[in-house]
Nucleic acid binder design. Structure first.
Lengths: 177, 177
DNA sequence: GAGTTGGTGAGCAGATTGCCCAGCGTTTCG
DNA sequence: CGAAACGCTGGGCAATCTGCTCACCAACTC
């Protein structure tokens, strides 16, 4: 679904939204130099197409009292996948979970109140039959926080796919005063 | 910084925002059953305190044309850390990067246009002196997408820390008609 | 040549925002 | 114990923005 690929304007719009989430449609149209209706239409399309999933608040676990982050690689007993997922989903400290290639493993991101607390979290995570082994890596630094802007710019540059190469669709028109 | 810990109202507010990001302050105050000014004050405090970093758009890499996600564990040559970070930060497909305990390693999240393209990305990532070894795990499923709500609820329940235990701060007051 | 799609500029009623005020119950401090 | 500080409530107001609709134009498609 979704026409995959965004054009240059979509890219600028997303980047703008990423940088200043609080601006409204009107302000965005000014910054982008296009009509309000255009921005509105683009936003609708981006959301409908799934490119923009939403605008959830970016909550910092550390500020919530969970300054420790870790990644755990889990080795699962064959056939126990579904149960393990359910189990992990029930642990609040499990922020995300992926199943990966390799050893039929899983990788999950955890947070904890302290290093000591991390032990509790890990115990809870692995304290479930079906999990054969777990190895944890504690995060010390985060040189590159989750980002999307560079990728959006890349995508916008690579695939202006949406329209033909010609039409600027730019400033012609014009009827008013 | 930031008083660490949120109370029950903060928790409800964040969860509400996470579920329906488009609602404004006014609508939120209605849903929460508190005065508009209160919501406004809470939002300000949460943002000032760093609990809420912002409201950036949630962009789906897959919809951008990057449906493949992978995690790469990198082994770095001692002392090359800084350079490697800079290098990785320059690759758009590197969505996030962490330095972790273990082997003085790094863990990064990558995306690519296809499995074949992933090879290109990995080559670019590891094609840098200072990176000794890399092992990659391709993500197949994502049973638990990055989430924060359960943790917020947990935090709100655990540490109502903000006020004393007594005062509900709830419905007293009231003067109008 | 006709039709469709996407963009522009304008307009309007209704809703929301930002900001300020006064009152009041609780908690804290001197 | 009395006073000040806080946080929340309920109103109010001007300015702004949103959602939606029009008519029109240009380019691409058939």
């Amino acid at each position: 679904m979704s026409t995959d690929g965004i054009d240059e304007l979509d890219g600028r719009l997303i980047v703008l939204l990423a940088r200043e989430p609080r601006i409204g449609v009107l302000e965005a149209s000014r910054r982008l130099g296009v009509a309000r209706g255009t921005v509105q239409a683009r936003m609708d399309r981006l959301q409908a197409g799934g490119v923009i999933r939403g605008f959830g608040p970016d909550v910092d676990p550390a500020a919530l009292g969970y300054p420790v982050t870790a990644f755990a690689t889990l080795e699962i007993k064959q056939g126990q996948g579904a149960d393990v997922r359910t189990h992990l989903a029930s642990v609040p400290e499990v922020l995300e979970l992926h199943t990966t290639t390799g050893h039929g493993d899983m990788l999950c991101r955890l947070v904890a109140r302290s290093n000591a607390d991390l032990q509790r979290v890990i115990d809870r995570v692995v304290g479930f039959e079906g999990i054969v082994r777990a190895s944890t890596a504690i995060v010390m630094e985060n040189p590159v926080p989750l980002r999307i802007i560079p990728l959006v710019e890349q995508a916008a540059a690579d695939g202006p796919a949406r329209r033909g190469p010609a039409g600027t669709g730019g400033e012609p028109a014009g009827a008013g005063t």
